[in-house]
């Protein structure tokens, strides 16, 4: 990467952010909205400085539970994707179930989960983050495996390689680009899962609970500040996934042009 390209890759998104914040500030000022309708970016720094300790502890609670749910989703989703990718019968059997499960609004699952595992707040939150994020991973892994060109299998199979060897040496690495594509989606979805649990069934932990306390106290700038903090965490996790992708599937990247 040239110095200019490196500069652009930082400066362009920053500039976009500044333009976005300026537009937001202008919109609130222009419409004359009070904070209970829409807070402006200039309302956010006071909200952060007043509750910075809460943002740190609750942000951490949200983050670790999201990452835990995401890791579970990676393990379970990959296993499920392998089963569906290798077996036509299992694919036919599981796809409708999976699609049906995914179509259920997760907000309706929150009270059920909260009732089944009463008081297990951490577990419940991790579970919901997992439930909402394993679907894209399972689908992408299963598609990656089932669309593997037969020649790729044949070059190893003709030498007497076992199924496990073929999976390890060819199918798995070849599926990595699709896997990371799905992981980017799953990472942001996992945050939605965590916060659903924290907001719909608040138990005093996580940014979702902070949002809820902002609501009960009519502290509207605080609510907006929580949303922005969540967006920030989402971006951080997303770029961690991008960095991992560069390391493990960087070969799939083509230089543009």
């Amino acid at each position: 990467m040239t110095a200019r390209a490196a500069f652009n890759s930082v400066a362009v998104p920053l500039l976009a952010l500044v333009v976005f914040l300026a537009f937001w500030e202008w919109l609130v000022w222009f419409k004359g909205w009070p904070t209970f309708k829409m807070a402006a970016p200039s309302d956010l720094p006071p909200a952060y400085s007043r509750h910075w300790d809460l943002f740190l502890t609750m942000g951490w609670q949200t983050l670790w539970r999201t990452v835990a749910g995401l890791l579970l989703a990676v393990v379970f989703g990959t296993l499920l994707g392998m089963i569906m990718g290798f077996s036509r019968i299992m694919r036919d059997a599981l796809y409708p179930l999976l699609v049906g499960f995914n179509a259920i609004p997760k907000a309706t699952v929150v009270p059920i989960v909260a009732l089944i595992f009463v008081g297990q707040h951490d577990f419940n939150t991790v579970l919901l983050a997992f439930m909402i994020s394993f679907f894209p991973i399972a689908v992408s892994v299963s598609i990656g495996l089932s669309t593997l060109e037969p020649e790729y299998r044949d070059i190893l199979r003709a030498l007497g390689a076992s199924q496990a060897t073929i999976f390890w040496k060819i199918a798995l690495p070849k599926t990595l680009p699709e896997f990371f594509g799905a992981l980017k989606v799953a990472a942001t979805l996992a945050f939605i899962g965590t916060n659903l649990m924290e907001i719909v069934s608040p138990h005093g932990r996580g940014l979702g609970a902070l949002f809820d306390s902002g609501r009960t106290n009519s502290d509207f700038p605080l609510m907006f500040a929580v949303l922005i903090a969540l967006a920030f965490l989402g971006i951080v996790l997303y770029y961690i996934v991008v960095a991992l992708e560069k390391i493990f599937a960087g070969w799939a990247e083509r230089s543009p042009g």
Binding site: E149, E151, Y152, D154, I155, L156, A158, L159, G160, A161, T165, K169, I170, P173, K174, L176, A249, W251, A252
Partner: peptide, 29 residues
């Protein structure tokens, strides 16, 4: 393992160098 195959599609593994691609059968045979 006494058979070597080449297809119309060269099916090289994109994540390996050319040398590592050529060495692949020796990891099996």
């Amino acid at each position: 393992p006494t058979v070597g195959m080449a297809f119309q599609n060269p099916v090289l593994l994109e994540w390996r160098s050319i040398l590592k691609n050529v060495l692949l059968p020796l990891e099996i045979v």
